[in-house]
Design a protein around this nucleic acid. Structure first.
Lengths: 196, 196
DNA sequence: ACCCCAACTTGATTTATATCAAGCCTACTT
DNA sequence: AAGTAGGCTTGATATAAATCAAGTTGGGGT
């Protein structure tokens, strides 16, 4: 069984293609705080400033809004080896419009913006990792953006099935529907049709 | 009248909060190539690999796909001080699914991925600039993503009016409609209603 | 073991938006 | 100056997806 930090170091070295020295690791361990959350616990409430960013070691979470009608809209579903934050609030220190909630028991490593800045300067593997993440992000959001604007419900579903097939096993169908911007009924019908 | 490079240096220093040395400037000028394109000219054709990234000094462009029915879907409208590329193709060197076309006469500074990597290492202001861009990007795409999934046509229009009000003066209405993921007729009707 | 709630399905109806179609205006082209 | 094409509007109709409304199922808590 790997510790949270072992998982994190492993991830960082693989993604960045660089090695972490013992000093690097010590530095990371002094400021990244391991946290555990139970299913249903909230990381962030709408209205609060998102002061922390978390690396997910184990478990999953959702980022969502609640509109005037009490409708929940899921913007993001996050799993292992992803980063968790409302970036708008995190970078600008404005009150968040989002809630972030654990969907499964969650183990994370938590840091602050100021500490991230320090790591960027001090640890080459860290800043290389961030560059790769930003690249991946640019690619992924460009794709999802196009899907959201131009694709039909069915095409968005197919796209999700090919990109993150495990999402549908792992999360309740109504949450996946919300993530796709669909009503639960519509997703149910699409899946029924897709069985052929 | 500022030269392309003056505009670029100015932008980079403002955004990064750092100063460019004369050496930095020389280095940037040796590898960023000034290019001019006339209205309607293509930067990138779907099927080609996007080998270059461009900083827009003057003018505008659109990034779009053409679907089976010959329908054009605009993913991005880009103006001065923005960067232009299909990032998926640019980073992964895969054939692009997009066309990129000048909407107005265009002046850009062009570079390659390999040179960008060099600049990131060699020029502190450059890498600080990229960090700020990535932050802004994360914020903007998070917003636009939520709008695309959760908002009605009218709300998306209002959002655009408050974020980029000049888009509607600058671009033909049918292109703005496509950018919003709407038919030209729907946008026309929304605007009519919004006049009250 | 039972109950109960939450998740999912299925059908009927409504609503938002696309599509089809026609006409109008304005700016180029010749 | 007339002709024409592209962009915009407006109206009628079609369609995708939401909403409303039951009914079914399955798993967790007591």
């Amino acid at each position: 069984m790997m510790s949270s930090f072992e998982v994190f170091f492993d991830y960082m070295q693989k993604l960045s293609g660089k090695t972490l020295s013992e000093d690097d690791k010590q530095l990371l361990m002094t400021h990244f705080k391991p946290k555990k959350l139970r299913k249903r616990q909230y990381f962030l409430q709408a209205g609060d400033v998102c002061k922390y960013i978390e690396f997910i070691v184990k478990g999953s979470a959702r980022t969502f809004t609640v509109d005037e009608k009490g409708h929940e809209n899921i913007l993001k579903l996050s799993v292992e080896n992803w980063w968790l934050a409302d970036f708008e609030s995190f970078y600008l220190l404005t009150p968040s419009r989002f809630h972030i909630e654990a969907l499964e028991d969650l183990e994370v490593l938590q840091s602050t913006n100021a500490q991230i800045e320090e790591y960027l300067k001090a640890i080459p593997a860290f800043s290389a990792m961030v560059n790769v993440i930003n690249q991946n992000n640019a690619i992924a959001t460009q794709k999802r953006m196009q899907a959201a604007i131009n694709y039909t419900a069915e095409e968005r579903y197919e796209e999700l099935m090919s990109t993150y097939p495990h999402f549908l096993q792992r999360f309740p169908q109504n949450m996946v529907a919300s993530y796709l911007g669909l009503s639960p009924e519509t997703l149910s019908r699409i899946r029924k049709n897709a069985l052929k």
